[in-house]
Design a protein around this nucleic acid. Structure first.
Lengths: 157, 157
DNA sequence: AATCTGCTGGTCAATCTGTACAGCGGATCG
DNA sequence: CGATCCGCTGTACAGATTGACCAGCAGATT
């Protein structure tokens, strides 16, 4: 669970250059190949590394518009709303939260006009009382993990 | 840019089982290995697939609390605020948006108490006028891309 | 009809993977 | 203090995969 500096360096290295294999990683880190293999196995069974899936860019797929929608849900309808939203491909992510809204979801669309269609589909469901949408203009910090990994590696060192 | 069914199947296959190589993928898809290689190359230079970095779980790293903060920014301070937030490891993602707030960021923390520290650090900056935070309780739909890829593959087929 | 493009099925050498082993140093424990 | 455990090193091996080619072929384009 707690990662040490070597784990941190390994993760950062893999994040920066995913194509290098275990052997090359061991060379870069200055440790034996078996060590890297053991660390990787451990990190994966720990769940620290969930996998190495391809990072797909929705924009390149033809969905350049991103938005966040805050949804207010009718009491007791949570499960139904979740199931409904899970069925919409443009819903990339859904959270239930504290605070003003009850749920927060990330949407993508083919254009601003298309976003209207997506929102209609998202909110056109009985359990949803109200929705407010914020369209993303810029993304100054894309989803990242390296700084956190470095932080965690130093804390647990 | 537009992906066809084979691209879609390839991406989905890789997303589901990242460890399989080009050879195994070609077997599963029933095409020649060279074809898979060519498709992969194309998808990567298109930017559809940005890479194969490790998917790190912040919770397993010791950061089980996630929150979204909506920030209101003083006019003209955007760039400074961005730089400030980019320097906070617990800020995993930052967007500028339309709507009530001006920015939306995703935070993680070691605990609810620790979240206070993170928020203080985030909002303790001159350009930030107001912040409202929503703590994530559940994550019914974790960040996903497969349904969108399938959608895109069928549209452009 | 000539061209292009993308896919096929095959080859090659080079590399990497998974697995195993013995040795070694540091830390833990009775 | 000595025994033991654990993680890392360095090495070995067979088997699989990779990247790079190639000629042939079918469908679409010009």
């Amino acid at each position: 669970m707690a990662i040490d500096r070597l784990d941190g360096r390994l993760i950062v290295l893999l994040a920066r250059e995913p194509r290098i294999g275990v052997l090359e990683a061991s060379r870069r880190l200055g440790v034996a190949r078996g060590t890297v293999q053991a660390r990787l196995d451990r990190l994966q069974s720990n769940g620290v590394i969930r996998g190495f899936g391809p990072a797909v860019d929705p924009a390149a797929l033809g969905y350049p518009v991103t938005a966040f929608a805050t949804l207010e849900i009718k009491q007791g309808q949570g499960a139904d709303v979740r199931a409904h939203l899970a069925g919409v491909p443009e819903v990339l992510e859904l959270h239930t939260t504290t605070g003003h809204g009850d749920m927060l979801c990330r949407l993508v669309a083919r254009s601003n006009a298309d976003l209207q269609r997506v929102i209609d589909r998202v909110v056109g469901f009985d359990g949803i009382v109200r929705a407010s949408t914020a369209i993303v203009m810029e993304n100054p910090v894309p989803l990242r993990i390296i700084p956190l990994v470095e932080q965690a590696a130093e804390d647990n060192d």
